[in-house]
């Protein structure tokens, strides 16, 4: 084994540091899109008309049961064919967002179902408006189980971003592959990428625990 520190510091670290920006950007944007998309899917799935809830349920099932990588390729090759040309990064973010919004939808649904039905009945009995029912009773109680689960998905999305390297997005994995093939030295680049993911996941997990504790303390006293 020969590990070259000068190569690591002069070539690998600066370029991976630049690529880290792309990775974090893809993670954050697709997470925010997934949060909104998940809410929409959850509302569609729990709609009272079976004509709306049934297709939404099946859509969620199919997306969840197929690999994200295939979906990324599908979007990447399909969109240009129907006349939409997007940069690879946008396509990748879209695929990540769709895949994870189906997962977020389940999290929301579980959170709302965890609120006892007596709470709804009490709100009706007290003649509360729908808005106040959600704002003051239902949402505060459904947040504590939702927040840590969503936090886990943030970390999961972060670990899924290397898949974007398959469609030539210049994120960390793609850049370390490029470094590897330019200098024919894969050891340093891929190891640095792995350590970066490990450290970032541990930091993110720590931050999520802080947010989780804050939510529990401030809402449930």
């Amino acid at each position: 084994m020969d590990w070259r520190w000068d190569f690591t510091f002069e070539v690998v670290l600066p370029r991976i540091w630049q690529a880290a920006g792309v990775t974090v950007w893809a993670t954050v944007v697709s997470f925010l899109l997934a949060l909104v998309g998940g809410l929409v899917l959850m509302l569609l799935k729990t709609h009272r008309s079976a004509w709306i809830s049934r297709p939404a349920t099946e859509f969620i099932e199919v997306i969840r049961a197929t690999p994200l990588l295939v979906q990324i390729f599908f979007l990447f090759f399909l969109l240009p064919e129907v006349g939409i040309t997007l940069p690879p990064l946008t396509t990748g973010i879209l695929a990540l967002a769709i895949y994870n919004s189906t997962l977020c939808a389940e999290v929301y649904r579980a959170g709302f179902q965890a609120v006892p039905s007596g709470q709804w009945e009490a709100c009706v009995a007290l003649n509360m408006s729908t808005y106040r029912t959600y704002k003051d009773v239902i949402i505060p109680q459904s947040l504590p189980p939702i927040v840590p689960a969503l936090g886990n998905y943030l970390v999961a999305i972060f670990k899924e971003t290397p898949l974007l390297s398959f469609v030539a997005v210049a994120e960390i994995m793609q850049v370390s592959k490029l470094i590897g093939s330019e200098y024919y030295r894969f050891t340093e680049a891929i190891t640095v990428a792995g350590i970066f993911f490990l450290v970032m996941s541990l930091v993110a997990a720590f931050l999520i625990r802080l947010v989780d504790q804050y939510v529990k303390r401030s809402i449930l006293h």
């Binding site: 084994m1 670990k159 290397p162 993911f197 490990l198 996941s201 541990l202």
Partner: peptide, 24 residues
Amino acid sequence: IEVFRGTSLLVILFWMFFVMPEFG
């Protein structure tokens, strides 16, 4: 558990395939 839950699967696969030969 912590190491393999914290890293991305794709990075591990690459590491297995391209870096392991460095270690023989």
